[in-house]
Design a protein around this nucleic acid. Structure first.
Lengths: 178, 178
DNA sequence: ACGGGCATGTAAGATGTTACATGATTTC
DNA sequence: GAAATCATGTAACATCTTACATGCCCGT
């Protein structure tokens, strides 16, 4: 009955689909192409997956659709955002991601939308995100239990430096792109 | 009929389970505890998942089991590696990972096994891995199509530096731990 | 008499993927 | 006449996760 865990794979596609319609109504085939143009380097979704996602989104009330008849071409099913859908997207896009591994795809997708849709609040998002990662670094630094295990020290070292690398990149991004 | 795509979530657990038995036969409950002790900081698997994985592995002929009766305790199902299972583990553990995102969990798990089981070849694995990532950097550097899009430049910058960070860490690891 | 440890699974449910179905039009 | 583009989906399959089932022993 409840979605609970949206699954790592399907999670962003919902929001990518919603986000693409922020510029106006569109139909599956076109969305698939726009997705490839604007997010192709970040995210590859099969065409069919997108259609499935769109149906789901309509069932959930985040989208609504009308059929647009065409001559000499198959009819189009044109979707547009509902208020609920717009809201869901805006909440998502302003929300920092909870983990380092979500940066590569999900956070970058969010930043992409800030850029493409010229949304405000990118700086705030980046700053929130940095604070979250700084807090992780602080907590990992406190873990003293692994002092006897050299392997664990290296793992924590990896994580801490990974987080630092991402924070640095976010700083660079903020300076250049906002 | 064929496994094809093992799925990102289940993939390492198979090999973790096999690897844990390299030290000798063991049963599900114990494996669950060892897994938590040795890999807890890297990987959390529910107890049930492990049992399911063990059954699957036995069906595939990578493990075999005997029941060990106990007094005043439930019987144990003691698994041991078959030749095929041992082989599958050794192949996996020496195989570099294909992507940056697989480093955090999968590559580190492999390195953990080199450490715990005192296997030879860690240096070779690290060097192969570095070559793979260096090749990625080279390819990303060649992508000139995104020169007009400042966002894409930043994304490629992110990837390249991400790969560099990981290569650096691998160097450090190799110097300290091998 | 109850919580925790020991020990193992099954079966159902949720989720994700993709092969296939359809069919007209335009371009080579 | 073959291939690509336009346009959409269904239904089956594969995979993953977890709620639940079972049951004894030990300590407090």
């Amino acid at each position: 009955m409840t979605p609970k865990k949206p699954g790592f794979g399907a999670y962003p596609l919902r929001y990518l689909a919603l986000g693409l319609m922020m510029k106006g109504p569109s139909h599956g085939y076109q969305l698939d192409q726009t997705l490839d143009e604007d997010f192709g380097m970040i995210w590859k979704a099969g065409q069919t997956k997108l259609y499935v996602t769109l149906s789901t989104l309509e069932e959930e009330g985040l989208l609504r659709s009308e059929i647009e008849p065409q001559e000499n071409r198959p009819d189009r099913k044109v979707y547009h955002l509902t208020a609920k859908g717009k809201n869901a997207f805006l909440n998502w896009v302003h929300e920092p991601v909870p983990s380092l591994r979500a940066v590569r795809v999900e956070l970058i997708a969010k930043l992409r939308f800030f850029y493409l849709l010229q949304l405000t609040g990118a700086s705030e998002l980046i700053q929130q995100q940095e604070r979250i990662f700084q807090e992780m670094i602080r907590e990992w630094g406190l873990e003293k239990e692994h002092e006897d295990d050299p392997f664990l020290r290296l793992v924590y070292d990896f994580r801490i430096n990974h987080a630092r690398f991402i924070i640095d990149w976010l700083d660079t991004y903020q300076n250049i792109a906002t």
